[in-house]
Write a protein that binds this DNA or RNA. Structure first.
Lengths: 235, 235
DNA sequence: GCAAAAGTGTTTCGGTTACACCCATGC
DNA sequence: GCATGGGTGTAACCGAAACACTTTTGC
């Protein structure tokens, strides 16, 4: 096959920022790196893009290989191209973030590959520019979640309003008035109330809800102001 | 220097979607490709990332080399990684969009490199996946401009309200009530009224305005609803 | 009976919409 | 004097914000 003349070839990697919610807390999944350089330091899930592999496909493959995760919400958000970002060899990295329900994948994750969940605020220092990637991913999620209902991707099929509210509060590191929150949610029509309650978190118990999936798909791209008045929170 | 073992290296390109406004119409800058494959077909401005070159830097360099453009608004928005997107050789492309005032750069552009401005709706078919890139870039600009004042980047220092409104109308392919439009703009405080008028478009003349640059920088990242009720326009 | 979390309404405020006429000028 | 585009105000409506108390139940 003909090739372009005299052009530099380089390594292309993908890195995944995996956000998870266990019903109570927002976490991030990290692994201990098992090869040089920076062996045994904490890192994002990453890997190289194969010679004939689609880049989005590579992100899915890596997620699957390292965690068993499949068909999760995964979105490309930025490509990092500083020539010195990897001290070993010039590597450009395409970064993705994933949103998952921790319980749904608990078993696969914990055993393979030294992966571990960290509270978002208690994550260790990461290799290379991975801390920057995490910062950017957090911003991106905050931005997108203010306008689109992506945070439901972090929840199990059945969830309660207090759980959902707690999730929003953690993502935006703020407190939300519960009456206004519920009103806004109801107005979207996305929630369907179920008949049973979650009694694990309180004596009274909180009703379970599920997503109206059709409406979710329809409305996903519309602007919905989930967090009005954010302005400078997002930066 | 040590290298990662046995990993596939590939070509990395950048492609720039350059949107321009001449005070009346919204356009896109394309070039006639001068090398194989697809010689003489229309294409985006693009080029390969050098061995020790920052990817964002490569985008700026290419913009400068092919058009003389410098210090323009340039934003990375998506990386295209289909292994078959370039029939010659596996090439991943990082796409950027630029927003410029056409008159400011008229001279440099027209003479070098067979670059030509096309009306956004009358652009010719492009090579590879460049049509898809343009579509994605249009969506991205619409999305971003609904929340942030980026469209000012397309205007000269002095501009009139009717020009600005026409720009918004073209970007969103819609018509806007001019009283409400002005009210919204005034409420942002971003505009400073000047004393002279543009008489080229009407007998009465329209007052020139300029941007309050400090406020522009401050407010750039805040959410401002420039186009409420968009919902499904954006997709 | 009391601690702990769930659930529920109202009022105020500000922004969004819809809508139609006069103004200034060049010809 | 008339054609052309520029510029201005108001009323109705709707969503956002602020605000506190009652309900349920396990212990």
């Amino acid at each position: 096959m003909a090739e372009y003349f005299n052009q530099a070839h380089l390594l292309l990697a993908v890195d995944c920022i995996i956000f998870g919610f266990d019903g109570e807390q927002l976490k991030i999944l990290l692994i201990k790196r098992s090869f040089e350089p920076a062996t045994d330091q904490w890192s994002l899930m990453g890997g190289f893009v194969g010679a004939n592999e689609d880049v989005d496909g590579a992100a899915q493959r890596i997620l699957l290989e390292l965690t068993g995760l499949k068909e999760v919400y995964l979105e490309q958000f930025k490509t990092y191209g500083d020539p010195n970002r990897d001290p070993m060899e010039r590597t450009v990295s395409v970064a993705y973030f994933a949103l998952i329900d921790i319980h749904k994948y608990e078993k696969q994750i914990s055993h393979n590959f030294h992966a571990e969940w960290f509270l978002l605020n208690e994550a260790p220092k990461l290799i290379f520019d991975h801390d920057q990637m995490v910062e950017d991913a957090k911003k991106k999620v905050r931005y997108k979640a203010a306008l689109h209902p992506i945070l439901f991707e972090l929840l199990p099929k059945k969830f309660t309003i207090p759980q959902l509210q707690s999730l929003y509060e953690q993502v935006y590191n703020t407190s939300i008035d519960n009456r206004n929150f519920i009103r806004k949610l109801s107005s979207t029509g996305l929630l369907i109330k179920l008949e049973d309650k979650d009694k694990s978190a309180s004596k009274r118990g909180a009703f379970y809800f599920k997503l109206d999936k059709d409406l979710y798909k329809t409305k996903f791209q519309s602007f919905i102001n989930f967090m009005p008045n954010l302005d400078n929170i997002i930066g």
